[in-house]
Nucleic acid binder design. Structure first.
Length: 453
DNA sequence: CTAGGGTTAG
């Protein structure tokens, strides 16, 4: 006999059927309570048909039977059938309405759901939350906001606020998150981990130190356990607000640290110019047997770059693939090119690009061109520009940097020629950067400034 | 102790 542990659904059906058999044997077939449960069980297994058979045979159906049936039908995708049953019901309860509204919401039929919602005489918090949740999931924040403002405040609960927070977070509306959090506090509704972490993230984006500090005090006052997620959110918040010392002390107080927690600490130390400390935290990470990932090395290499630790950077770049089996990505190469360029090692940078998969990467050559321009290495600049023009003939930024480089080197004729060439080819001067997003961090390779931020 | 609402958070 075959048995698939992954098929928990099938297993549940089997057990449900066995249970049903037991029910009949023990003479519990007429128990409404048991029958209602079975209807729910069948539809939960996607077998609402069996539930319907049972429902039809029942002699004494109560409101829960009807509601279980409506819920079962819409839950298994039989919206029309659920609606028909709903329409035949003479005595509906709030739950009946909520079941059907939820069915429409889950089916993406928000207009139908809203029609029912508006027809309800009495609504409870679940009615409101179901509707608001439907709008939030479809990113219809305008509609969600309208209902949120109409919702009686006594009915607003944790779920209501988390729904709004989730919606705002999806759209990057961090200020709204903080505002909604304030309203939540005024109504004395206790936030949960989700709320707290979301608010901390919002504080990071807003660089709202005071608000973030308030949240930290709240966590301490209520003795909320600092798990890896919440701790990391705090670390990022303090670091983003410029307070690396407090970020460090939060990190040190964390009981539980996963890859992302370590990555956040290493990255932020690097950003703040604490290169050696970042490397030392990295070595602690290895000691604690948390395997580093690509992001870890982005932080490590970034720290070396910010602090001019050339030899260390080279070493860790090799370590990344040789010891940890990770494949360096464009961001890692970009970081190395920048690191080497800043140390006036343009030949090394060039070699790194050419001996890798990065041969045809615009940001790489852009970084090299920028560095060459800054260091006044015309020859290398021309070399890089040649690659850039081949890879993207219509990108203006390389012409601009090249021309500026010539001017700075006193080669005005060449500078003018480049400008003319640009004009002749109808290339407009644009912003001239490309960016890559990794783990929510925008890595921008600005050709002109040769920076990785 | 049978029916209805949320979270891929850092």
């Amino acid at each position: 006999m075959r048995y698939h542990s992954a098929c928990s659904k099938l297993k549940a059906i089997k057990e449900g059927l066995q249970l049903h058999g037991q029910v009949i044997k023990r003479g519990l077939s007429d128990d409404v309570f048991v029958q209602n449960s079975l209807i729910g069980l069948y539809s939960a297994c996607g077998l609402v048909g069996f539930g319907l058979q049972l429902f039809d045979k029942m002699s004494d159906r109560d409101v829960v039977s009807w509601n279980s049936m409506v819920s079962g039908l819409v839950g298994d995708g039989f919206l029309e059938e659920g609606r028909l049953l709903f329409d035949t019901m003479l005595e509906k309860s709030i739950v009946t309405w909520n079941c059907l509204i939820d069915g429409y919401v889950k089916g993406g039929l928000l207009y139908e759901a809203r029609g029912l919602f508006d027809r309800m005489k009495d609504r409870d918090s679940i009615s409101w939350n179901t509707m608001i949740g439907g709008y939030v999931n479809l990113c219809l924040m305008k509609d969600a906001e309208v209902l949120f403002s109409l919702m009686p405040k006594e009915m607003k609960d944790l779920i209501t606020f988390n729904l709004m927070v989730d919606g705002y977070a999806r759209e990057g509306r961090f200020k709204n998150i903080v505002e909604v959090f304030e309203e939540m506090r005024l109504l004395n509704i206790t936030p949960n981990r989700f709320t707290i972490v979301s608010v901390l993230t919002a504080c990071s984006h807003l660089v709202a130190l005071e608000q973030g500090e308030w949240v930290q005090a709240y966590i301490e006052r209520n003795e909320i356990e600092l798990d890896a997620v919440m701790g990391t959110a705090l670390v990022n918040m303090f670091a983003k607000c410029g307070n690396i010392d407090r970020a460090i002390s939060v990190f040190e107080s964390m009981e539980e640290r996963d890859v992302l927690a370590w990555n956040a600490m290493i990255y932020n130390l690097g950003v703040h110019g604490y290169g050696q400390q970042a490397l030392s935290v990295f070595s602690d990470m290895l000691k604690s047997n948390i395997p580093p990932d690509e992001t870890t090395f982005l932080g490590v290499l970034g720290a070396c770059r910010h602090s001019g630790l050339v030899e260390e950077g080279k070493r860790y770049f090799h370590l990344m693939s040789e010891v940890h089996g990770l494949v360096p990505k464009v961001e890692h190469y970009g970081c190395m090119v920048d690191l080497l360029s800043r140390a006036d090692l343009l030949e090394d940078a060039k070699e790194l690009i050419e001996t890798s998969e990065m041969k045809s990467s615009i940001p790489m050559w852009g970084a090299l061109l920028g560095a060459s321009s800054r260091l006044g290495n015309v020859e290398m600049g021309e070399y890089a520009a040649k690659h850039l023009m081949t890879l993207d003939p219509f990108d203006s930024s390389c012409y601009v940097v090249l021309s500026n480089m010539y001017s700075a080197a006193g080669m005005n004729e060449k500078a003018i020629a480049i400008r003319k060439n640009m004009k002749d080819h109808g290339i407009e001067k644009g912003p001239g950067y490309s960016s890559i997003e990794i783990n929510g961090v925008i890595q921008e390779f600005t050709v002109g400034s040769n920076s990785l931020e």
